[in-house]
Design a protein around this nucleic acid. Structure first.
Lengths: 332, 332
DNA sequence: CTGTTAGCGCATTCAC
DNA sequence: GTGAATGCGCTAACAG
């Protein structure tokens, strides 16, 4: 059991100086002789003194803690995002509360409440399950906030995005270059902003290639393996002549692979398949998946970097969206 | 921008009662009339009052926050573990700092320092990269601590484990039942406690089946795909007649699959393969992987449950290790 | 360069 | 059942 931690006062007493001198020395503030500073710091170390962030937070009204809110930590996308973000936070000596909302808007709301109670300095929100209005309302409660892949703005709110539209455009271009002419799209959930942007990219890509988007080549689905598999079957029955499928993301794409196999189509000989994200197992499935790699960790680092600037009160140059990169493997 | 948050004092003033009455009402403490309590709570709600956990933490010296420390959040094992743990914490209205040490002992040390500064009530540590002594030293700084898959004990320290030995024993039994007679083992990193226990299970399993463990059938490796692949090649060159391989974990097993394919062996016809963990992509590879499923989320929930009991000062019954479950797929 | 005073928002302890 | 003092550990603002 930790024998009662020592306080700044203990250190001051032992050092024979005032409390403020210790405070200044430890925080690297001016107003302490070099001599005094060194000896105080050394003493503090020897005494195992650690400043209380709690007390400091109360006194300064800045806690040096942040929050990250997202729906599912078990999803590698969010896990990697959070890892990137916390890497940056750690370098700035900030701790972060990671709040898992379990895809539940109610829990998301209580997560925000909790973070307010913790008096955090700022928050990063990814894939909120709240309606736009409510989300804006919530993030406005914080001094600063960064939203990932959302277009909600306001004072103290910044955005960090992936250029989904551009990415899918590249994917279409690649397929066309490979001689594919009947390119279908598995579109993901209707409510998702990224799904919307990816669909836009698909349509624009076809138009650029001189083809016209046909509704019968587009199918929505739940973004999991089962959903992808079913969507592939539906598309195939509607358009037996299709020779390529772009999927909402890698999980969906894996489902598509399965659906195609069950219908006796060979990949990529008969049908080419492209996913999005480049999650770790995209390279492991058979055939390995051609996909649009998103630098998720970089996205997380960027988000945290922006949040730190926001917290420091800096003006922000408008962010450019991160561009995904086409990784060509066996499936296309 | 949040227009200066209201404090307990503001609520008291508006309600026309004393500060303490509000405090008692909000915290459900006795000593307030039912009438008063309800009206105060309602008023607080209307004013958007949220108690400051920072101030409360200073006053009570309990922060209602916890910490989790592990090497790599991008590793699904830890992500799922953390998710399970935070699910339980959330239900108890506790927030948790998640500290990613990046496999770096130095960073792990600073993570512990940070958590001490945050004055957290307890900590969960999984897969520490610190030597036993140092780890014990560190966790002893906290009021309560739960160690996952470690056998370090002490006052206020509890353990939560997976019964690796038992699991591998089951795996061996299954292979023997399938008629396999030359069973090899890819053993993972030497420093890992779970690797040690799995190896022990392998040896015990062979003995039970009336065979004797041969050093030439055991190969250590770095637990990633490349490591598994190489280990398989080494084993094969040493023992061309082997007909089964148990791998340290699923990642390693996937490497083994690759190595076998490159050597022209068919799975499972020529060689059966079993992994450990049942990470999500174990079911996705070809052939799909037979593996020992560990209820990772359950492990996380258990760890957090134990931590909460520890924090509440409860006496703990010694924990029973969680048993993995053999999931039979194509590879064995 | 150093020390003193006051207060951050809340809960504990005692009075009433 | 309610309220008034006191302090948690620290820093901001001011004094010397």
């Amino acid at each position: 059991m930790a024998n009662k931690r020592s306080t700044i006062e203990d250190v001051a007493r032992v050092a024979g100086v005032s409390l403020m001198t210790v405070s200044r020395a430890i925080n690297g503030r001016p107003g302490v002789g070099e001599e005094t500073r060194r000896s105080v710091i050394e003493l503090a170390e020897r005494m195992g003194y650690r400043p209380s962030r709690v007390a400091r937070g109360l006194a300064t009204r800045r806690t040096a803690t942040l929050g990250i809110v997202f729906p599912d930590m078990a999803n590698p996308f969010f896990a990697i995002l959070a890892k990137g973000a916390t890497d940056i936070a750690r370098a700035a000596d900030l701790n972060v509360f990671i709040m898992n909302t379990d895809e539940d808007p109610e829990l998301e709301l209580t997560a925000f409440d909790s973070l307010i109670e913790e008096h955090i300095d700022g928050v990063i929100v990814a894939a909120s399950r709240l309606p736009r209005r409510r989300l804006l309302e919530q993030v406005s409660r914080f001094g600063s906030a960064v939203l990932v892949n959302s277009d909600i703005g306001g004072p103290g709110i910044a955005n960090v995005d992936v250029d989904d539209r551009w990415g899918i455009l590249e994917a279409v271009k690649h397929l066309v270059a490979c001689g594919r002419r009947r390119i279908a799209f598995v579109a993901g959930p209707r409510e998702s902003g990224s799904a919307r942007r990816r669909l836009a990219g698909y349509r624009a890509g076809l138009v650029r290639a001189g083809m016209s988007p046909e509704p019968s080549l587009i199918e929505r689905c739940i973004p999991d393996i089962e959903g992808g598999s079913r969507a592939a079957a539906v598309l195939l029955s509607r358009e037996p002549s299709l020779d390529a499928i772009i999927a909402y993301n890698d999980i969906t794409a894996i489902g598509v692979l399965r659906g195609l196999a069950e219908s006796g189509r060979r990949v990529p000989a008969d049908v080419a398949v492209i996913g999005v994200d480049d999650v770790p197992y995209a390279a492991l499935v058979r055939p390995s998946l051609t996909t649009l790699k998103v630098d998720i960790s970089g996205l997380g680092r960027l988000a945290m970097g922006v949040l730190l600037e926001l917290r420091a009160g800096q003006e922000l140059a408008p962010m450019e969206a991160i561009r995904p990169q086409l990784i060509i493997r066996e499936s296309a």
